[in-house]
Design a protein around this nucleic acid. Structure first.
Lengths: 150, 150
DNA sequence: CCGGATCCGAAAAGATACTG
DNA sequence: CAGTATCTTTTCGGATCCGG
């Protein structure tokens, strides 16, 4: 679809989908959050063709969720690191993992999220920051600017 | 990419991406959460080609996040409703909206989420269900089954 | 008018080979 | 390693048509 239109639209959700409406991009962020930085790490982990990995890395870098950094001059070597925006997206991946486990968890054993410091399993839950209420208990209404009826 | 492989892989995140790694699917869920049920409502709201919409609705129905229900026999009319799985995905969309607002919020005024009952704005935050800590403050580690090094 | 199905050109994905 | 070039295959998206 038209990604440029998505990222400039009036819906805040669309603006995120501009990045992760593509599965590869989200999986790259996942691997980056696991500490991967190099082209070949991503390529091997994802089984992705190099040309499309290249394209995604460039797009994610231009979008500001990854940062390219040269860590060796001779030979020239670059690494990709999560920016603050990228790190802040990781909890959303965690929430997606929670959902995936609950509603599509059949078959083989699934990956788990743990707190790296305590070693305890983490269960992602989306709440309202103000009230603390879990959002799945709240009747949400998305209000578009300029009054668009639903 | 290969969606079937995604939805059967060992990573819980991948299993969610099988559904929303596609931007259209997520936007359909967004509109469904706004109360839309009919083919033409989605089509008009999204500006999507009918064949694509048809394909996505079928996929989302087979995936179990939408349910097709016939509400009129003559003429035959169907509506699409969120299932429990679909409703539980909405908080993730809310978290994505929050992120989109923070990191890609420039330009025109953006859509907002409000509590339909109180009318108050909702700020989505992903926390650990057990400790209550915001996940962006937690050092997360994704543990794959069968020990895969990062 | 609603809910699609069909057809076709354009675009993107994927595999593979190759280069600095 | 970290990509680029090239090629084939798949998917997308727009226009149009069809049955109820």
């Amino acid at each position: 679809m038209d990604i440029d239109k998505l990222s400039s639209g009036t819906c805040a959700i669309s603006r995120s989908l501009a990045f992760v409406g593509d599965a590869w991009s989200a999986l790259i962020l996942r691997d980056a959050s696991r500490g991967m930085t190099q082209f070949d790490q991503f390529r091997t982990s994802l089984g992705i063709a190099p040309n499309i990995l290249s394209r995604r890395l460039k797009a994610l870098t231009e979008a500001g969720v990854l940062e390219k950094r040269r860590y060796s001059e001779r030979p020239p070597r670059d690494e990709y690191m999560l920016t603050q925006a990228g790190r802040d997206f990781v909890p959303i991946l965690a929430a997606m993992a929670e959902w995936g486990r609950r509603y599509n968890g059949g078959g083989s054993p699934l990956s788990e999220l743990v707190d790296r410091e305590t070693g305890k399993p983490v269960r992602a839950l989306v709440v309202d920051e103000n009230s603390g209420r879990p959002l799945h208990e709240v009747a949400l209404q998305l209000v578009m600017p300029e009054a668009a009826p639903g």
